[in-house]
């Protein structure tokens, strides 16, 4: 991904920096949970860092589901002869 034509945004060092910044933001977000008084509606949603792990796992499950569905139902994009 960090290929040619030297725009600063796609240089390898910028991308590494972005990853570091992103990781810090994620860590801080979860850490801040310790200072919030949870107002759970149900049960699971009161657990530590609920939205973080729930969001992550939901996305992984969705991508895996899509992958499986794709194996069954993906076709070349000229399938209908368009």
């Amino acid at each position: 991904m960090s290929e040619q034509n030297g725009h600063w945004l796609v240089s390898a060092s910028t991308i590494r920096l972005l990853w570091i910044a992103f990781s810090i933001v994620l860590a801080v977000l979860v850490a801040l949970d310790a200072f919030l008084v949870p107002h759970p509606y149900f049960g699971l949603d009161g657990t530590f860092g609920f939205s973080a792990w729930y969001g992550f796992i939901s996305c992984v499950v969705l991508v895996v589901l899509a992958k499986v569905l794709g194996m069954l139902f993906k076709r070349p994009d000229d399938y209908y002869g368009d």
Binding site: F22, L26, L29, P38, S51, W53, Y54, G55, F56, V60
Partner: peptide
């Protein structure tokens, strides 16, 4: 605060995924 934090966690960790 709770709502904003929860939404940010949800979205940014989806981004991570």
């Amino acid at each position: 605060l709770n709502h904003v934090m929860s939404q940010l966690q949800l979205l940014l960790f989806s981004g991570l995924a």
